[in-house]
Amino acid sequence: MDLGSLLNALILGVSIASIWLIAALGLTIIYGTAGVINMAHGELIMLGAYSSYMLQFYLGLPYLLCLPASFVVVALVGLALERGLIRYLYSRPLDTLLATYGVSLVLMQGVRLIFGSDPKYLAVPEIFQSNVMLGSVSVSAFRIVVLLVTVLLVLALWLLFYKTRFGVQVRAVMQNKEMAAAFGINSGRIYMLTFALGAGLAGVAGALFGVLAIVLPTMGASYVVQAFLMVVVGGGSLAGSVVASGVTGEMQSVFAFFTNDTLARFIIFVLIVAFLRFRPQGLFAQSGARR
């Protein structure tokens, strides 16, 4: 076996991990804070890709600016969704599951009605279309972009949750909504903002996935399952999702290196099921969280 190839596989694993993680970030925030099982997460990712496409196609915005712009656009959609629907369902978690699934269908068909079902195209600068060689190690430039964006977002989220007043309020609401409200925290507002934040993060992920893969009304469906797996395995906390994605990404890359992609996925899913059998609360369960 060639060590250079194995090194390549390990580095690729980090990149795959970042893709799993950025798909799961928004969901982690929403599920972790409000306990909402957001089935429309995949479609929020899809909306992110379409926002980038629209901004680029109609306004000529450069790709790198499309990332924050998609965040804003999808966050606004999330905000509207939370105010118009989700907030009436916080006390009925199973209904949020059905309602958000309905929303996902509405979004998918709506986008299909507006943009048609043919795939769309996102242009990226020339430098992101090739790779970087370091000795025998080769990494695609765009994968580095995805990794950097993911790291920045995780850092930003960490700072937001642990270093700001807003973060303290969010964590208080997570632990006990009524108690936090009794201390004067506007828990409705916290839920609203975290939902918008989670939706915005999905938007950024979509803008990146549109370049890595394809922009299609159905594109979200393939990400939502893996996002849920990461959130459940991680236990709904930020650190949990980071670790779960890191381990899964590396496993996918290394197993695929030794066997093939189909078998690698099979092994990963078997391991996840086995893991959840023995630790259903996930890696880092939040003590005291209301579930």
């Binding site: 190839s5 690729l12 994968r143 893969a213 394809i214 393939s222 695929a256 290196f257 992609d261 189909t262």
Partner: peptide
Amino acid sequence: EYIPLSSSEFGPLLN
């Protein structure tokens, strides 16, 4: 090599 139908991850294969 065969890739699962819905997969958009070609990194390992391309390596």
